[in-house]
Each structure stands twice: as structure tokens, then as C-alpha cells.
């Protein structure tokens, strides 16, 4: 089976205000079509790790591979392109462009990629929204919907370019159990039907238990299985 994402001996320090070794020798991989979850106490470095894996943070030691290609050391322009095309990211806090409509938010990464026509992008975006039960909100302004709805819009946005891997930092953190379950089912369906790989940080043990693999972190290290 192909590995989609591989981290080799990743170390990270925060140098301010004092030197703090936040990630210690992290090595692991995510296979194609695998649904992995990361658990761990608050402050153990989960978000920090995810920012590195998503190529947004380049200040680390070690090597990162995406689709078996080394991405460590590439310049910012190439990394933007990789993020745009291959990585979907859902933040711990829902982040949308508040001045744009819901559907425009979802469409932006696809417009940036520029592989599809406007009509195709609108169609795809609407389809993703429908899948997440928020198709009726498409024309609303992103600032005028609820927190849970925003989180689902963010998921739709992360999926718009059919990425190789979807990373989520507590993507269901703001959702009620009904919608959390809905999101879980969608993730599962994407994994099974489209072979999407997922790496999701969660504090919800019931959620984590139903994923293929739980990666446990403690004090900046991954605990052995």
C-alpha cells in the first residue's frame, strides 16, 4: 500500500520565550485510504505537529514526505501549490472569509487551482455542501451562520480539490453529537468510496475508537502502539 504522508525524525523547538523542545523525534506514516486519529493531552503538541505536516510551518528538523516525495526544503511557492492541490485542512477554530458567501468560501481553493471551469466548481461546491447537510446555506454570508455550520463549510472547503489527505484539528469539536456523527460518517464514506486518507486530531474517544488507527501523543512524543 502506498504511503500518502510520512514523517521522519521530526523535531521542533520553540525558541521564545525559552527554548522548548515541543516535538521530539516524531516518525510515523499514513497509508493511502487510511483513517488515522491523533489523541493526547492538551498542550502535548498535536496542533504543532499538524501545522508541520500541512507544510504551513517550515521551521523544524527532520524530513516530511507527501506521496513519497520529499517536501521538506521546498520553497514557499511550491508548498502553497502542494497545500492547494493535495492537502485539505480543517482548523481547530472554524476559519472562513467572513465577507464572502458560504459557497464562495468553498470555491476559492478550486479557483486558485484553476483546473476547472467556474460552472464545474460551483457544481462541485454545491455538491460538497449538500453532502454535509448545509446546501441550503450556499448563498448566505459566511459571517451569518452558526459555529457548527461554519465548521462544516470549512470541511467542504478542505474537500473541494479532492486532496490526497485531509487533516483536521478537532473538526468535530464544535458540533452536536448528531452533526459530529454525520461528519464521521462522511469521512468514513470518503475513505471507503474515494480512498481519501485522513488524519484527525480529536479529544472524542468514541470518535477515535472507530478510526483505523489511534496515534497517541504525550509530551511531544508518539507513544508506541
Amino acid at each position: 500500500m502506498n504511503t500518502v504522508l510520512e514523517a521522519k525524525n521530526i523535531n521542533k523547538h520553540f525558541r521564545k520565550p525559552v527554548d522548548f523542545h515541543v516535538l521530539k523525534d516524531i516518525s510515523f506514516n499514513v497509508k493511502k485510504g487510511e483513517f488515522a486519529s491523533i489523541m493526547g493531552k492538551s498542550g502535548c503538541g498535536k496542533s504543532t505537529l499538524l501545522y508541520i505536516l500541512s507544510t504551513m510551518d517550515t521551521d523544524y528538523e527532520g524530513n516530511l514526505y507527501l506521496n513519497e516525495e520529499l517536501v521538506t526544503g521546498k520553497d514557499h511557492k511550491e508548498l502553497s501549490r502542494i497545500r492547494n492541490e493535495h492537502i485539505g485542512f480543517v482548523f481547530q477554530f472554524h476559519y472562513l472569509l467572513s465577507e464572502f458567501s458560504v459557497i464562495e468560501n468553498v470555491m476559492l481553493p478550486a479557483k486558485k487551482l484553476g483546473l476547472k471551469s467556474e460552472e464545474e466548481i460551483i457544481h462541485d461546491a454545491q455538491q460538497k455542501l449538500d453532502m454535509l447537510n448545509i446546501g441550503n446555506l450556499a448563498k448566505k454570508r459566511a459571517s451569518r451562520i452558526s459555529g457548527g455550520e461554519k465548521q462544516r463549510v470549512a470541511i467542504a472547503r478542505a474537500l473541494i480539490n479532492n486532496p490526497s489527505i485531509l487533516m483536521g484539528d478537532e473538526p468535530t469539536g464544535n458540533l452536536d453529537s448528531y452533526n459530529a456523527e454525520n461528519v464521521f460518517q462522511i469521512f468514513k464514506k470518503l475513505k471507503e468510496e474515494e480512498g481519501l486518507s485522513l488524519l484527525v486530531v480529536t479529544h472524542d474517544i468514541d470518535f477515535a475508537k472507530r478510526t483505523d488507527r489511534i496515534i497517541v501523543m504525550e509530551d511531544g512524543r508518539i507513544l508506541p502502539d
Binding site: M56, H76, S80, F89, Y95, L96, L113, R157, N161
Partner: peptide, 16 residues
């Protein structure tokens, strides 16, 4: 600021 961060996270380059 926040919008800029989101744009960058979703694949817009610094130049964009």
C-alpha cells in the same frame, strides 16, 4: 490578518 492566514493555508502563495 485572519483572512490572509486562511488564504495561505488553503494554497494561496505569499505573492498571490
Amino acid at each position: 490578518m485572519k483572512d490572509i492566514a486562511i488564504l495561505k493555508a488553503t494554497g494561496f502563495s505569499g505573492f498571490d
